[in-house]
Amino acid sequence: MKIWTVANQKGGVGKTTTTVTLGGLLAQQGHRVLLIDVDPHASLSYYFGIDSEELSSSVYDLFIHKGTLTSDVTMDCLCPTKLDSLFVLPATMNLATLDRTLGTQNGMGLIIKKALKLIENEFDYVLMDCPPVLGVLMVNALAACERVLVPVQTEFLALKGLDRMMHTLEIMGTSLSKEFNTTIIPTMFDKRIKAAMDAYDKLKEDYGDQTWDGHIPVDTRFRDASQAQSPASVAFPRSRGVYAYKKLIKELG
């Protein structure tokens, strides 16, 4: 089972779009895929029409049952999607209370890693959509993964946010005694805008080895796909944004 975490400490850079689109493409390739929403805002969950306020179980349950976690407890939290091999482990607003109520307890940073170990034979890929803040949820997502995907909007304010995220990965890598396999993904790229071109060049200059050679273009089909509650690769398979993510999948392997 390959586990990828999609993270950035700046919002609005394409984390949920990246998680959903890559997950949809992998599922369409025949892989069993689990998407985990670890953001209290539950954007990924709402994307698939899952109302976090009406859920009987969610990611939050993994933390509540941390001492009695089983594969059944974990699997019971999953929600199906329109794709037979694509499932969602949804979020609820209760996640926003974790740092205050349980964050200081021993082992709280490894709950998701333990849960995924219990169901490792059920899925080929797991992709996690992170909140834009460093706390127990992002720590869990980073501790569990083998690859970090960092979407970065091609504009200069987003590059500042990237610097903060890369520093966080250095700190977390030291704390967890692991080296993250990190891929920076330029997103919302518009070649007609000089500022976007300049930001892209700066990104390559500062993080050349870690930056994907391609880019994800601005594409209104991503918004249309979210309204359809379906991955763009299903709703609009010939869109230029989906084509770009297909190229990215080949790079990631």
Score class of each variant (00 low, 15 high):
N94P: 12
T97W: 08
L95I: 11
D76L: 09
D61T: 03
K114H: 09
D61H: 06
T97F: 09
D51C: 01
N94I: 06
K66I: 11
C79N: 15
S45C: 02
G49W: 01
L102Q: 10
I119Q: 10
Y46W: 01
I112K: 06
V59M: 07
K66Q: 14
G49Y: 00
I119F: 09
A42I: 11
N94C: 00
T74Q: 09
G109N: 15
D72G: 01
L98N: 08
G67R: 12
K117Q: 15
G67A: 13
K113I: 11
D51L: 00
T81E: 01
I112H: 06
L69G: 12
T104D: 11
H65G: 08
S85R: 15
V59Y: 00
F48W: 00
L86H: 06
T81Q: 03
L83G: 08
K82Q: 04
P80I: 07
S58Y: 07
T92K: 06
I119H: 05
T104F: 13
I111T: 14
I64W: 08
V73H: 05
P90C: 12
I64V: 14
L83R: 03
L98I: 02
G103M: 09
I111Q: 06
K82W: 02
G67W: 14
L98R: 02
C79Q: 15
K113Y: 08
I112M: 01
I119S: 07
I64S: 04
F63H: 03
G109A: 15
L44R: 01
G49A: 02
T81K: 00
G107S: 12
I111W: 07
S52H: 09
A91P: 13
V88C: 02
T97D: 14
A96W: 05
V59F: 00
L44S: 07
L95G: 02
L44H: 04
T101A: 10
T81S: 01
M108T: 08
K113P: 10
S85Q: 13
L69V: 09
E53N: 12
G49F: 05
A96M: 08
